[in-house]
Design a protein around this nucleic acid. Sequence first.
DNA 1: TTCCAGGCCC
DNA 2: GGGCCTGGAA
Length: 360
Amino acid sequence: MPTLSAPTPTATTDALDTTVAALAPDFALRLVAWQRQHGRHALPWQQTRDPYRVWLSEIMLQQTQVTTVLGYYQRFLARFPTVRTLADAHLDEVLAMWQGLGYYSRARNLHRCAQAVRDQHGGEFPRTAAQLAELSGIGRSTAAAIASFCFDERVAILDGNVKRVLGRLLAFDGDLASSAQEKRLWRHAETLLPAAGADMPSYTQGLMDLGASLCATRSPQCLLCPVQGLCEAQRRGVAEQFPIKTRKLKRSRREQWWLWLEHEGRIWLEQRPATGVWAGLWSLPLFDDEAQLLAQAQALAATAPEPLPRVDHALTHFDWVLHPRRLVLERRAEPGPGAWVARDDLARYALPAPLKKLLG
DNA sequence: TTCCAGGCCC
DNA sequence: GGGCCTGGAA
């Protein structure tokens, strides 16, 4: 062990803490005023403080842009107007309503969360961020968003947009790929909260709006920013260099063959396993090479399947090349566990986006 | 055509 | 720390 000749930074304080505390009142004041004048107010989930509606919007908005969410949000509310109607629905229907939104574990967690609210909270969402964060699919940031919007709780959010806003404001030099540095930024986010709970909805929305508009990843509009002059990265003219994230993506390639079987206008679909890519969704049978697909095809028909143009699909960690092969069967067969689905019934099945496109 | 953002769970 | 999906930007 080296001798301690100088004070060692502890887990609870660092050199930025004093700066952040001094910045806090002015930052909150400006952000709240800017949000009230220039922020977004007309989105459907901003017309309510009903935690069910706010929760639904927050889950949909995770990893998904506002314009995409709008249609799904309205359809969901029309079908599931209350948390109870959602809890009482079948998971398959929830997944079908979610199809195309991606990250399907969100839909499973949504359903599980609704059931927990029904069964363990008497049908009412809990009113604190700490309790909300115990529910499926609600993490620290989403819990804080709901609690601040619906209940004025003084609690910090820290999603990707906010990491960018605060990373720049403080010229935060920690690498956010490190959980210790992320923890530091959470602490600063808490220090920056406005003193009055009544300001929390505008403050939280202001952080989101700023990150979604002026404080964009590329070409931030610092000249229009309400915290111009307070923002350290802007003062140095290096806003685009923050936040710092070193994690680099290792991408691989996956090539597979997709067997599109059709018989009298019906399409053969198989439900995917409950974990992994497209968990629980319905897809065409997949093969790791063309020979395997052809062997299966030969067992079902005398004719050869017709090659269709390849489909490219990207996931976080690999690029996926799918080769569809279409085969119309004269005789009906049951290739295994699955279902023959009429075209008109496709909407009732949760299909991954590229398959919906291929069949559509 | 490729690259990238994005919150939670295990 | 790795996996998940899609849309939009580069």
